[in-house]
Design a binder for these strands. Structure first.
Lengths: 110, 110
DNA sequence: CGAAATACCTTGACAGATGAGGTATCTCGT
DNA sequence: ACGAGATACCTCATCTGTCAAGGTATTTCG
């Protein structure tokens, strides 16, 4: 079974920010980590990922810079900002609340 | 804090089906129950709700019939079908899996 | 009588996810 | 040296679910 993107829609920003809390990273790597952590059951599509980066940068949650210039294939690294940390905190709380509510709404028995 | 609909996007069908598992119901009532169970923190908008009913009926997950003819305001009742029960089961499992994966992806510490 | 609650429905707009396509570099086996 | 596959980035058009806004009709209660 695989998890459709719509099931996680609205939480992509949270995932990315939570990842960046652990340190700067770049698109390809984040995608790999997500795929690995979910045992391949969930995979952010590239288009989705880069859309999210753009959105997060526009809202001041992350900043970016080119790294590995000259060495390997060029990489654009992303770093979380102070605003991003606050947003991330808020999104994590929202996820906890979403879980609670959903569990209550999906209860089948009395 | 209130939960935006997009955070639950993709799970509306699961919520509705899980509700109908407990017995036939109609739009207005389902909406009320959802609002009550979530302590007002989440509310399906009417347009969203009726869109979902239409979708679920088209895919054979639910059937509908007019009730209370003559008495109060007319009500369209919905009943879950065998197909709907199977779909509901699948969606509940998907929700459990989504939770697991999300929790793993959102982990902030080692 | 009039307001509020009950109860249904449709339309157009919007935002996020995605398929499909494109570019460029690096690594490794032959 | 060559080709394949992995690494790494990006954009655009399309699809789908949510929702704001609007509409209709009935019942209840002060």
């Amino acid at each position: 079974m695989s998890i459709a993107g719509d099931l996680i829609r609205g939480h992509t920003d949270a995932i990315i920010l939570a990842r960046l809390l652990r340190g700067d990273s770049y698109g390809y790597e984040i995608n790999k980590v997500i795929s690995t952590l979910s045992s391949g059951r969930f995979e952010l599509k590239e288009a989705t990922l880069y859309t999210a980066f753009k959105r997060l940068e526009e809202t001041g949650c992350i900043t970016s810079y080119w790294g590995s210039s000259g060495a390997g294939a060029r990489r654009r690294y992303y770093a979380i900002t102070q605003t991003g940390k606050q947003t991330c905190q808020k999104l994590l709380e929202e996820w906890q609340e979403t879980k609670e509510i959903m569990d209550k709404l999906l209860e089948v028995e009395e």
